[in-house]
Design a protein around this nucleic acid. Structure first.
Length: 207
DNA sequence: CGGATTTGACCGGCGC
DNA sequence: GCGCCGGTCAAATCCG
């Protein structure tokens, strides 16, 4: 559930604030989504706090960790306002240069032909922060763990620091660090010297 | 009509 | 002590 948006000093794009929309309220899970300043096609997603709501039941699609070079995740390097960063998700959907696109993690007709990995972002302009429909990390109120799976899609499961993580990013995330001290995980994916996704970013197709 | 989104206002922390 | 900035709240608005 989006609860705010703010222009960040020095950033070209506003930061969007999401919190767990699960009922009853009280779940401290938060996530901050900001479009990368360096690369507008990337999204920086930071998760704060874990869920206190009943969100630890493994999604039906769990455990489908697919080592896709386009999907990188990391721990978090930021700790804002004393909150405990649960994880920062790094995503990249850009096809590796000189390498055929890996099989879609999500059955996305047509869009995959353009290298789009994320169905949700595929239809969203880079300026996601202003989009009314687009929640890069939709929370459970917007989507259910079962969605997607019904379609036989291969989903990725994130150990749910935020309600949204497992469900929202069901097509996006490979993994995030579970609750605990912030851990900086940097994945260097050596794929033909091209696809090196580093951190904190999710690539969305340019509008 | 209910729920989701937007957006201006408010609050607290931090640096000067 | 003051101002700036990030984060959150809440009322207004939009959409299905």
């Amino acid at each position: 559930m989006k609860y705010g948006q703010k222009e960040i000093l020095g950033a070209r794009f506003p930061r969007s604030y999401f919190k767990c929309g699960r009922k009853p309220a009280g779940c401290p899970a938060r996530k901050h989504v900001q479009q990368s300043d360096a690369d507008p096609s990337k999204l920086e997603i930071t998760y704060l706090n874990g869920h206190t709501c009943d969100d630890d039941s493994p999604p039906p699609s769990s455990s489908h960790i697919v080592p896709d070079p386009r999907i990188i995740s990391s721990g978090t390097q930021r700790n804002t306002a004393g909150l405990v960063p649960v994880a920062t998700t790094v995503l990249s959907s850009q096809p590796c240069i000189g390498q055929p696109p890996s099989p879609p993690l999500h059955s996305v007709p047509d869009m995959m032909t353009t290298g789009v990995l994320l169905p949700t972002s595929a239809v969203v302009p880079a300026a996601l922060s202003s989009s009314t429909q687009y929640d890069p990390v939709p929370d459970d109120t917007a989507s259910t763990p079962s969605m997607g799976e019904e379609e036989g899609e291969l989903l990725l499961f994130i150990p749910s620091p935020a309600c949204s993580q497992s469900e929202l990013l069901h097509t996006e995330v490979a993994k995030v660090e579970p609750l605990g001290p912030p851990v900086w995980m940097e994945h260097d994916v050596a794929h033909d010297d091209a696809c090196v996704a580093i951190s904190d970013f999710m690539v969305v197709p340019e509008a």
